[in-house]
């Protein structure tokens, strides 16, 4: 199995499993939700073996609660480590967020305050995780609906500093960036210009819902034109970055998912062609 991750892939979800295994569609790579593949036996383990034989994969986690003040859960990390070995994943990504405090949890990704205290804390945690796993982590920006009144820096500065100080890489979710720019009234282009783009190793694209007073990150609809425009702007600056279509609710047909994938691939191809022309010139 190759771990070459290039072009526009998709996040694998259960409703598409049988299509994937029976039809073996042409998709360059898959992202697996790590937390769904911890089973140590039964069907899932067998399926995982087949999937990783057929496609290059990356692992994406949602339950590490990286930013919490609670102790790091090394039992969980051990499962991640086992899974990275089992799947030969190209990389493992998690979120710049927290989900627990003093043992109480939420199955959601909560924003950290963008303060020096939080920055020091999450960098220390990433360092521990990277040491344990023996590889670089990709950290994703989350969407959020509230922000701390006492933030000491912007989200872009925070994420950039996390990458710089912890020596990790970035999974930039373009939809999350757009959602936050509307919810917290900032210019997403300024955000992109502030971010150390050379650290961005993967992109996420997905849909959201307009709740009137704010945008809700739902991963349950098509990617809107404004997000595509932001994506195109970024790709024009960086060139090809592996891009993933995420769709978690009201999951559509494989064909609909592929349409989004093809749009992303088209944008990536165009950027590559332009880069080629520039090189020749």
């Amino acid at each position: 199995m190759s771990t070459l991750i290039q072009g526009a892939g998709v996040g694998l979800r259960t409703p598409h499993l049988s299509h994937l295994l029976n039809e073996r569609p042409d998709v360059p790579w898959l992202e697996l939700l790590a937390d769904n593949w911890f089973a140590e036996g039964g069907t899932d383990l067998e399926l995982l073996e087949v999937i990783t034989e057929l496609y290059p994969v990356t692992l994406h986690g949602v339950n590490l609660s990286l930013g919490t003040l609670d102790p790091l859960d090394f039992d969980y990390l051990e499962k991640i480590k086992k899974l990275t070995q089992r799947t030969h994943t190209a990389w493992y990504s998690e979120h710049c967020s927290f989900s627990s405090f003093e043992g109480k949890r939420t199955p959601d990704l909560l924003p950290l305050p963008y303060t020096h205290e939080a920055l020091r804390h999450i960098c220390d945690r990433i360092d521990q995780v990277q040491t344990f796993l023996g590889e670089k982590l990709l950290i994703e920006n989350i969407s959020c609906y509230v922000e701390c009144a006492d933030n000491q820096m912007s989200e872009a500065t925070f994420i950039g500093e996390v990458a710089r100080q912890a020596g990790c890489e970035i999974l930039l979710d373009i939809n999350n960036l757009y959602v936050n720019s509307v919810n917290h009234r900032f210019d997403p282009i300024d955000y992109l210009n502030e971010l150390p783009l050379s650290s961005v190793k993967q992109l996420h694209l997905s849909g959201h819902n307009d709740k009137g007073l704010f945008l809700l990150d739902s991963h349950g609809s098509e990617i809107i034109p404004a997000v595509w425009e932001l994506y195109e702007y970024l790709i024009s600056k960086t060139g090809d970055i592996p891009t993933l279509i995420e769709w978690d609710h009201d999951i559509p047909s494989w064909e609909t998912l592929m349409m989004e994938c093809r749009t992303a691939q088209h944008i990536l191809n165009r950027a590559n062609t332009t880069a080629g022309i520039k090189d020749i010139a």
Binding site: L69, L110, L112, E117, A118, H121, C148
Partner: peptide, 12 residues
């Protein structure tokens, strides 16, 4: 200055 613990406690 917000304390991270206070923020996390109230968010959860």
């Amino acid at each position: 200055t917000p304390h991270l613990a206070n923020w996390q406690n109230n968010m959860i």
